[in-house]
């Protein structure tokens, strides 16, 4: 069998797995969306107020916080995974939480990973709002709160782009969640492939394990879904960037 045939057969089987709604594939996709989606929501709830606080308030340590955000934007996922793992293992300072190898640990790791990214891009979007817009709010009798609301309206497309960039990074990330989540599926195969339904197995971590087992068609199916998700997020992000 040539390498082309091998790939074509892999793609055909992958399409069969996707369109037959294979439970193993669906459960992995569901865990990916649940973990990355929750982490993105929590990171957004932190990052946007943080970006506004940095933009509008004067406080001690502001420059240090900006440096921390900028550094955090380039954090290596495996380092974040290792850090979170060391915190939550039973002998670690947050061991009492008892969340190691759970989806909560994966959400925590992705939250740490993408909060600086969403904050940083939101900060740029807020800074791009002309100073004259904020001054006009004040000249028309608006308060600081009105200025924040108007800035949020003006920067909305940039902030949506920031959130989508965070979601994209979370979906595509593998190092951190592999360490803290453990890539666990229940015992016993379902739908004739892989192992049981996913517990902490996501699209990215499953691709690594299925490839190492030599199940290329399952890997291709998972990769295809992952690409579709990330592509969808990026198409949305591009749409909002153009609107901006």
């Amino acid at each position: 069998m040539s390498s082309a045939d091998f790939l074509i057969q892999g793609v055909i089987k992958a399409l069969e797995l996707i369109f037959s709604l294979n439970p193993y594939i669906l459960s992995i996709t569901g865990v990916s969306i649940q973990v990355s989606g929750t982490a993105t929501i929590l990171a957004t709830l932190t990052a946007i107020p943080l970006a506004f606080a940095i933009s509008f308030m004067h406080f001690r340590g502001k420059q240090g916080l900006i440096t921390l955000v900028n550094t955090g934007m380039g954090l290596p996922p495996v380092f974040v995974g290792l850090f979170v793992f060391l915190m939550i293992v039973p002998v670690g300072p947050a061991g009492f939480l008892n969340i190691v190898y759970t989806r909560k640990a994966m959400i925590l790791a992705q939250y740490i990973l993408i909060t600086p990214l969403i904050t940083g891009i939101s900060l740029s979007a807020i800074k791009a709002v002309p100073r004259s817009i904020i001054e006009t709010v004040f000249t028309l009798g608006g308060t600081q709160k009105d200025a924040v609301i108007e800035t949020l309206k003006e920067a909305r497309f940039g902030i949506i782009t920031a959130v989508l960039a965070g979601l994209g990074r979370a979906l595509a990330e593998v190092g951190a969640i592999l360490i803290v989540g453990g890539n666990i599926a229940r015992t016993g195969s379902v739908g004739g492939i892989g192992e049981g339904l996913s517990e902490t197995r996501t699209l990215t971590t499953a691709i690594t394990s299925e490839t190492s087992k030599g199940d290329i068609s399952t890997s291709i199916a998972l990769g295809f879904i992952l690409i579709c998700l990330v592509l969808g997020v990026n198409i949305l992000a591009n749409f909002f960037q153009r609107r901006e």
Binding site: P130, S132, I133, E135, T136, F138, T139, L140, G141, E150, K153, E154
Partner: peptide
């Protein structure tokens, strides 16, 4: 300030 109004040379228009 609510009893005044300042109009800039180039007005900032809200989107």
């Amino acid at each position: 300030r609510r009893r005044m109004s300042l109009l800039f040379q180039t007005p900032a228009i809200f989107n």
